[in-house]
């Protein structure tokens, strides 16, 4: 039996196999317990150096990664590279070379340009984990969403999951779409047509133009954050109207025959894409998502650290690659 190794980098879920995704989710389970221990720390990544390289502002993703790293005993450095005067591209190449020269073990990168994580991964020997690249992917967010759905419903296969809101600009939506479909869920998206990417139906996704239709259909609603700047750029006329037409409210949910699990990647705009009574309601698993985020990221860090260099890129190209050696009695 060969274990489905992950390869060198985690840049997205699109090119991963269902087995690889399941491996991460299964590995995340025991890590949940680590965060409940009196000493919330295991020595698995002792001596590993990890750089958290954030070219975009982020609080919760960075904190979640940092906790995951520290609970695995890695040495971490945070680099916030926003507001640099040099152009973004130059910074990225130069940053890659500098990191390589410092012989670090892993890089967690967030960058405003789609493909930035892959770009970095192709140029350095260290493991690269994508913490969000442009509008492309945010794989650890989708993995924690998958874990939360699996915890709540006991399965993912056959569930109807609808991503609601600004799908066009959402890396969370893209990663969720890949992860959910690979694990056998039915996926839909719902939002104004101005925020739907071209060709999304060709990916096997149902598109609902009205939130009422989505609510009638779904077992799970994953409500995406609506960036304020979407209004300024003219994609929607106003936040008020958005709430009235697309807001997830208790009144709308009441019309569903079954309880719908409510998720949100955060940070929430209460009263815009989601009503507070829904966010704080009995079917909300929003805080479970945050808890699971640490476990999933620990699992990813742990699996990549144990991955072998010659398996690099195997996962990216969609091949599974060979697995780790068997354990034996000792």
């Amino acid at each position: 039996m060969t274990a489905p190794a992950l390869g060198k980098d985690l840049t997205g879920l699109e090119h991963m196999t269902p087995e690889q995704i399941r491996l991460i989710l299964d590995t995340a389970e025991p890590f949940k317990e680590v965060s409940e221990r009196p000493i919330k720390k295991v020595p698995a990544l002792r001596g590993k150096t990890i750089v958290n390289l954030f070219f975009e502002a982020s609080t919760r993703t960075r904190i979640s990664f940092e906790f995951a790293e520290k609970r695995l005993s890695a040495d971490t450095v945070n680099v916030a590279a926003t507001g640099s005067s040099v152009s973004k591209g130059e910074t990225l190449v130069d940053t890659a070379r500098n990191l390589e020269a410092m012989r670090i073990d892993m890089v967690v990168i967030r960058h405003p340009s789609s493909g930035a994580a892959e770009f970095l991964g192709d140029r350095i020997a260290s493991n690269v984990i994508n913490a969000g690249d442009g509008k492309h992917e945010h794989p650890t967010q989708a993995l924690l969403d998958l874990l939360t759905i699996r915890d709540k419903h006991g399965k993912i296969e056959g569930l109807k999951v609808c991503l609601v809101g600004d799908v066009l600009h959402s890396r969370v939506a893209r990663s969720n779409l890949w992860g959910l479909s690979k694990l056998g869920a039915e996926v839909a998206v719902c939002g104004p047509w101005t925020l739907m990417p071209r060709g999304i139906q060709e990916l096997g996704v149902t598109v609902f133009g009205r939130i009422e239709e989505a609510i009638e259909w779904a077992d799970v609603l994953n409500v995406l954050r609506l960036q304020l700047e979407r209004m300024e750029k003219g994609f929607i006329p106003s936040l008020r109207e958005y709430y009235r037409v697309f807001g997830v409210t208790p009144e709308r949910l009441e019309r569903s025959p079954k309880p719908i699990t409510i998720m949100h990647p955060g940070p929430m705009n209460r009263g815009v894409e989601i009503d507070s009574r829904v966010a704080d309601g009995p079917h909300s698993v929003i805080l479970d998502q945050v808890t699971n985020g640490v476990a999933v990221r620990m699992a990813v860090l742990y699996l990549l650290a144990g991955g072998r260099a010659e398996l690099a890129d195997a996962a990216k190209r969609g091949g599974g690659g060979g697995g780790g050696a068997g354990g034996g009695s000792e």
Partner: peptide
């Protein structure tokens, strides 16, 4: 007790596919 996370040979044996329960 699952000692996987306390092993001193991570990276030479590859990841253990399953980490057991610690209780």
């Amino acid at each position: 007790l699952d000692i996987t996370l306390y092993r001193d040979d991570l990276g030479t044996v590859g990841p253990k596919p399953v980490i057991g329960e610690t209780h």
